[in-house]
Simulated assay, not measured.
Amino acid sequence: MAPLSTSPALSDDFIPAQHGFFFPPEWHPHVATWLSWPHTEASWTSERLPLMLPAYIDFIKAISASEQVCINAHNETVMQTAAQKLTEAGADMSRITLLPHPTNDSWCRDHGPAFLINPDRQERMIVNWGYNAWGGKYPPFDLDDQIPAAIARYRNLPYVTPMTAAGPVIMEGGSVEFNGAGTVLTSRACLLNQNRNAHLSQADIERYLCDYYGVQQVLWVEEGIVGDDTDGHIDDTVRFASEDTVIAAYEANKNDDNYPFLQEIHHELKQMRLLNGKQLTIVELPMPDPIVSDGLRLPASYANFLITNGSVIVPTFRCKQDQTALDLIGQCYPGRAIVGIDSTDIVWGLGSFHCLSQQEPSI
């Protein structure tokens, strides 16, 4: 086969799955991890931003211990501020690249690119999904929507934009979880929400997932956790640890608001069968104590961890369940260092380390 064109935009009728491209699991080796430096009050107020930055910088340092970190910086001032803070914190700047890519907010998991690979052809490409800030909740989001194309140009990679008659298909990276063997997990509360792709049916959404992520099976849970303004992203509830093992958030306290939702997810997971007919192995991951700020229950979850080449970076929340969660996750990812970083101030922005990052796989 002839190689893909490296002129960035592929035609709208290009279907990645038909050309052997797929989204690999997060444990697949990375070229880098992408972030978007926080610079506005969209997620953290001027009072909160200085409180979250030390943990955010620790996060960057932890990623850079085993791979490159690429950071979208809104403008030259933000770039200089980021470089100064990272340098003062002792970060290895040879492993960090700051790029002049304007952004509205910091949640790169959702506005960043979906990198696909084709090992047989030794090629990579990007899916440029549409982005509308979780159903138009937090305008403006026009700059974030342009990030995948900007990164495609920077990497000299072709990209395709899934289109319908109504415009680009809306999809967020935190709403999908992959096992690397043809299966994606997602939630109806998010992907079937009328604030994303109201004109598409569940069957339509499944077709786009299969065509543009290169999967053959879509498994659905119903809901997310309380306080999650994304309408139920899967990366707060269920994560693959291997082709047939999931780590699933679990709440034992029947009086907790999350109890019925997480019980239902566990029931759904037990009914699922993979493409080979195998049942999922389920590892129960405890939930942290509730974190409430200004009367709002925050979406704190240990499941919002990031897998890097050498580690798993796990949010912790200053409670007794922290060590149990770290130990359980460590058992699921042998050979990787388990790095716990206090995310109490980060989660005030309604997300944590997985939400903030998007991995770039190697071929």
Rank of each mutant, 00 (worst) to 15 (best):
L191C: 13
E284C: 08
I205Q: 10
L99A: 10
L86N: 07
T281G: 06
D289A: 12
Y250P: 04
V218Y: 05
G295K: 03
P286V: 02
P50G: 08
K278E: 15
L185S: 01
L306G: 11
W107N: 03
G227I: 10
S343D: 09
M272R: 11
F305V: 10
P119D: 08
N118D: 07
V127E: 10
A150N: 14
P158Q: 13
Q216I: 04
D322P: 01
Y259D: 07
D231L: 05
L4R: 13
D256P: 01
E76T: 07
V69D: 03
D235G: 03
L4K: 09
I60H: 07
M287E: 07
G130R: 07
W37L: 06
F115D: 08
D211K: 01
S7D: 14
P361F: 11
V339K: 12
I307S: 06
Y333K: 04
T97S: 14
Q146N: 13
E222M: 03
W34A: 12
E76K: 05
K320L: 05
A165P: 02
I96D: 04
P168G: 12
V169R: 10
R188Y: 00
S311W: 03
G90L: 10
L200F: 01
Y302D: 00
E123P: 01
A42N: 13
A300T: 07
D228P: 11
I151P: 05
M163T: 03
T245Y: 04
N104Q: 10
N197I: 04
A337M: 11
T183V: 15
A32T: 13
D257H: 07
Y259V: 08
F22W: 13
I247P: 03
D345P: 05
Y333S: 12
L200C: 07
V221S: 09
A62D: 03
A42C: 00
A42F: 10
K254Q: 15
I63D: 05
E264D: 09
R239P: 04
S64W: 02
L219Y: 04
D342A: 04
R155Y: 13
S36E: 10
P8M: 11
I247C: 14
E360N: 11
S66E: 06
N156H: 11
A9Q: 15
M93I: 12
P38G: 01
D58F: 03
T87R: 11
C108H: 06
M171Y: 08
A252P: 03
I341N: 00
R109Q: 05
D256N: 14
H19D: 08
E172I: 03
G112W: 06
I313T: 09
R273Y: 07
Y154D: 15
W134G: 07
I329Q: 02
W44D: 12
E264S: 07
L298F: 10
D105R: 02
V347Q: 10
F59W: 02
A189N: 00
G335F: 13
G351D: 00
L350F: 13
L143N: 14
Y131R: 12
A303R: 00
I15S: 03
H266F: 02
W348P: 01
I60D: 01
A248S: 15
S187M: 00
A9M: 14
C332P: 11
S106G: 04
V283W: 10
R95K: 15
P102N: 11
L35I: 02
V169C: 13
E251R: 04
L306S: 05
T237I: 15
R95D: 05
C210A: 14
T6N: 15
E284Y: 09
